[in-house]
C-alpha cells in the first residue's frame, strides 16, 4: 500500500502543494500527467530521493517520511534504466542480494529465476553496456525486484522503447503484483500503457491528483484518493 498525505514540495519556482494519493496493497497503479507537471517529483519523494516540505508518506502502513531510500524497502526503475555499466548483467540483477550478504547459491538461483522470466539469461555474463533499450529496462526491472520489495516505483519505464518492445514489456508487467506480491506505481504519459496496465489510474493536473479509474475499489476509497483542498 502506498499512502501519500498532504505532500508539499518546493524546488525553486516549482511547487506541489497538498498532494494526496492512496494506492491499495497489491494494485498496479499508473500516475499520468503532462511532462513537467510533477509526476517524477512525487515518485522521487516516495522513494526518498527528494526532500519534502511537509506531508506524510506511508508504505504498507509503515511511516517512511524521514527514512533513507535504503530503509523504505522499495524497488525503483528510472526512465533510462540506469544500469551499473561497470558490472555484468548478473551483478546488476544480484546487486541488492549481494549487499545483504545472501549465500551465493541463493543469489544465483534468484538471479537466474529473474533472468529466465525476463528473457535475459543469454546476457547474464555480459557487461551492462551496449544493450538495447528493451534489454536494459528488463534488467533494471529485475534488479529492482530481486530482493522482493513490497513496493515498486517505475518512472516512465517504457517511454524510450519502440512500439513492439513496449508491447512485450507490457506483457511482462501485466500480473506483476500477483507474481511478485508487489504494489506498483508506474509513471507514464501514455494512454496506451494506462489502458493496458492500470488497475488504478491517477492523473496529476495543475497540482491536483484525480482518480480516473479504481478497479474493484469501494466508492469511499476513491473519494479518499482525491486531493484535499488546495491552497495554491
Amino acid at each position: 500500500m502506498i499512502d501519500v498525505e498532504h505532500l508539499h514540495i518546493r524546488q525553486g519556482a516549482f511547487r506541489l502543494d497538498d498532494v494526496s494519493l492512496h494506492i491499495p496493497r497489491g494494485k498496479y497503479a499508473l500516475l499520468m500527467g503532462k511532462t513537467g507537471c510533477g509526476k517524477t517529483t512525487i515518485l522521487e519523494a516516495i522513494a526518498g530521493l527528494r526532500s519534502i516540505g511537509a506531508g506524510v508518506i506511508r508504505l504498507n502502513d509503515r511511516e517512511v517520511t524521514h527514512l533513507s531510500p535504503a530503509g523504505r524497502e522499495i524497488g525503483y526503475v528510472p526512465q533510462d534504466g540506469a544500469l551499473f555499466r561497470t558490472m555484468t548483467v548478473r551483478d546488476n540483477l544480484g546487486f541488492a542480494l549481494k549487499l545483504r550478504a545472501l549465500p551465493a547459491r541463493a543469489i544465483k538461483e534468484r538471479v537466474e529465476q529473474l533472468a529466465d522470466w525476463l528473457g535475459v539469461r543469454p546476457l547474464l555474463d555480459r557487461r551492462a553496456v551496449g544493450l538495447s533499450g528493451g534489454e536494459a529496462q528488463r534488467i533494471a526491472l529485475g534488479r529492482a525486484l530481486a530482493n522482493h520489495p513490497p513496493i515498486l516505483l517505475m518512472d516512465e519505464p517504457l517511454s524510450s522503447l519502440d512500439e513492439e518492445t513496449r508491447d512485450r514489456m507490457i506483457e511482462l508487467l501485466k500480473g506483476l503484483p500477483q507474481r511478485e506480491s508487489v504494489t506498483v506505481l508506474h509513471i507514464t504519459h501514455s494512454r496506451h500503457e494506462a489502458d493496458q496496465l492500470g488497475e488504478w489510474i491517477f492523473r496529476l493536473q495543475e497540482g491536483r491528483i484525480e482518480v480516473i479509474k479504481a478497479q474493484g475499489a469501494p466508492s469511499e476509497n476513491i473519494t479518499e484518493s482525491r486531493p484535499q483542498d488546495r491552497s495554491t
Partner: peptide, 13 residues
C-alpha cells in the same frame, strides 16, 4: 549521471 547512485540507494546502499 547521479541516477545510478540513486538506484543503488533504493537497493539498500
Amino acid at each position: 549521471s547521479p541516477r545510478t547512485e540513486q538506484v543503488a540507494l533504493t537497493l539498500g546502499c
